[in-house]
Design a protein around this nucleic acid. Structure first.
Lengths: 226, 226
DNA sequence: TAACGATAGTGTATCGGTTACACTTTCGCA
DNA sequence: TGCGAAAGTGTAACCGATACACTATCGTTA
């Protein structure tokens, strides 16, 4: 593909990256995964996991790969969010970033530092540190998308572990919308949409009545309601 | 920015393009704007208007510019849709395409052939010719987005000319959802959402009672309902 | 071992927005 | 002046969403 190199002179190509906003719920809060940058620009600053697209790599794969390399996180729900391409968003060169957002249950996320990143850590969404590039905007766009999808999809079910109780599911929704939800109405809804089924087991968790345990009927698909 | 050229050898950059799906309603049908390609690949084939991103140009501006250059169409509602980056979507080199979709009233769209395109023409959405690249997929993604936004936004109002009657507005919705709509319910809804105001004029159009003429309260914004 | 604290689990009545539905008005034209 | 054709108008039924309070079952402790 020598033609590509020729074009660099006639028509310079921008760099293309993917950046991933990973959300999870842990410690009763919505949290976001960030990595600390090791090199310039924004050295030492927190940023989204992500990086340059390989020339023979799909966009989706690039997002999954960078996430895995930098944080050890794999196999989660990944959806393309939006593409950011302001001319001055990277001081080095022109960079087009295809942003993704990802959701996963807290338990599945085993962090480990990769080669590109000195460190990876979770931050509460409502207490983010200063971020590199335009990553603050990207995260807030992802959050808007997440919240708006709560209304008409089962996207929030991606935060659930393999098995769960209805109270745990309700708590996820309460954290996301930041408001209490009526227990009876919530259960009526959760059982009506046919996305969960009983495992038959009970879960004991303290000195009170044990809860029925459920699982998702289809872990790998989010459903659009109405 | 000589660094960019250096990178072409170490880390080859993909080309970045924008492609625009323009919808309008004319002749009682949803139609899409296509251009006929003058050079290879897909020479003579119909394709979406669009082209390569200038290195110092915003993505949005690129989409608007390519549209203007190739079709003479300007000043319409433009929204980023999705980014397509399959490895083999362009046989020449790796190309990442940031797709946009645009809506406009039929009257404002004066077509003229530009330099990149031999010809530009409208096609009914339900009778599209074979298309270059993955443009068929892009158009159908755009259509899905359009239809889903009908439910919760005033996006369809972008098809309206400066002034219009409620029957004309209703007709737009009927064409888009491809089903008849109850007149009284539609008018109740249209007047309740506070997006239109009477001009005070009447429009005579045939041998029957003249219709009240309306305009949008805010042409430049689409509103999200509920 | 009985009382208590804590979470699980359950049904009904009301409200509000959505839908279904038919006739009168006003024009142009024959 | 009567006829065809689109403009314009209100009410009742329906249905999904909401508000709301008590019993069940466990572990712990007095």
């Amino acid at each position: 593909m020598s033609r590509n190199v020729d074009h660099c002179y006639a028509y310079p190509h921008p760099a293309v990256t993917t950046d991933v906003v990973v959300f999870t719920i842990r410690d009763e809060r919505l949290q976001t995964l960030l990595i600390r940058r090791v090199g310039p620009p924004f050295e030492g600053c927190w940023a989204l996991p992500g990086g340059f697209l390989d020339i023979d790599e799909d966009l989706d794969r690039c997002a999954a790969r960078e996430l895995r390399e930098e944080t050890g996180v794999a196999d989660l729900y990944l959806e393309q969010l939006c593409t950011f391409g302001a001319v001055d968003r990277d001081p080095r060169e022109r960079v087009i970033s295809v942003a993704y957002f990802a959701l996963a249950p807290a338990a599945r996320l085993q962090l480990k530092a990769g080669d590109d990143a000195a460190d990876a850590a979770w931050f509460p969404f409502h207490a983010l540190p200063p971020l590199a590039f335009d990553h603050d905007r990207i995260i807030h766009t992802a959050h808007e998308r997440l919240v708006s999808k709560l209304d008409y999809s089962t996207i929030a079910f991606q935060f659930l572990p393999e098995t769960f109780t209805l109270s745990e599911l309700q708590r996820i929704y309460e954290i996301l919308v930041d408001a209490p939800i009526d227990k009876r109405n919530f259960r009526k809804w959760a059982l009506a949409i046919q996305q969960v089924e009983e495992t038959g087991e009970l879960r004991r968790h303290g000195s009170h009545r044990p809860a029925r345990v459920y699982r998702l009927t289809d872990r790998n698909r989010i459903t659009y309601l109405k």
